[in-house]
Design a protein around this nucleic acid. Sequence first.
DNA 1: AAGGTTATTGCAAAAACTTGCAATAAGGTT
DNA 2: AACCTTATTGCAAGTTTTTGCAATAACCTT
Lengths: 138, 138
Amino acid sequence: MSCTSEYASQLRARGFRMTSQRLAILHALRHAETHLSPREVYIQAKQELPGLTEPTVYRTLEFLAENGLARTSQTGNGHLRYQIAGNDHHHIVCRICGDEMEVDHALLERLYHKLESDSGYMRIDSHMTFFGVCPQCQ
Amino acid sequence: MSCTSEYASQLRARGFRMTSQRLAILHALRHAETHLSPREVYIQAKQELPGLTEPTVYRTLEFLAENGLARTSQTGNGHLRYQIAGNDHHHIVCRICGDEMEVDHALLERLYHKLESDSGYMRIDSHMTFFGVCPQCQ
DNA sequence: AAGGTTATTGCAAAAACTTGCAATAAGGTT
DNA sequence: AACCTTATTGCAAGTTTTTGCAATAACCTT
């Protein structure tokens, strides 16, 4: 896979290493259609790499998110889920039934610019999750 | 305290009950200047009510948030923190040093309206946490 | 291709959080 | 004021997430 070596060199450029564990976890994220919980990642990736342990999954997901290869989503109950980086969109999830839809990044662009100039903060997180009540549940 | 009975009747109106545990936890949140972790709440509130247990704190915080008496803040690492409801502002926190500043609600008003009309969702969460890189760390 | 440096992993134990269920107590009713 | 109903709590046991440290293995250098 070409993307594999792409990831590897991205890491090496910053002094990190590509490992079979990281690869297995990246594969799991890539093949998922949506974001996964750490446990789901563990179950998926363990099929590819049976020796994989759970602490490694937690540490790796955090590592991938810090380095821009993965992205976190907040989930109301305070548990992070992860997805592969790349699709620049956001989510709005229903507080009641959990239903979820995508929000295009363009909608937030203006807000981010304003926030950046007002606050002086840079690189404001490009994945946001909003919570509301969906039309069904209203 | 007048607010005490205010809270009590808010709950009773919906068929819930006011208890010494809920009161102790509300006090802890009220006296905090910022949002607290469940453990911090536990430690505070236990001083007022020594018999209090940790599971009760978790359940109560979730309950208070669901009923609008408390508010959750997301914290990057995926752990919820809680604060008393009332101040309508948001936070932006630095991904690197953890520094934190307030963002006025007015800034988001336009976005919320747009999101609501585009998506059909209602009552979009009125507390958002953004993540970025603060001026110091840039 | 072999060796050295050190980022990364696995293991084991700790801490944080959740769940089920029987006992308790809030607050409406008599 | 005593009684009933049932929301709420505490306890104990489970699951999830984190942490420290010694062993391993990327990958740079020779």
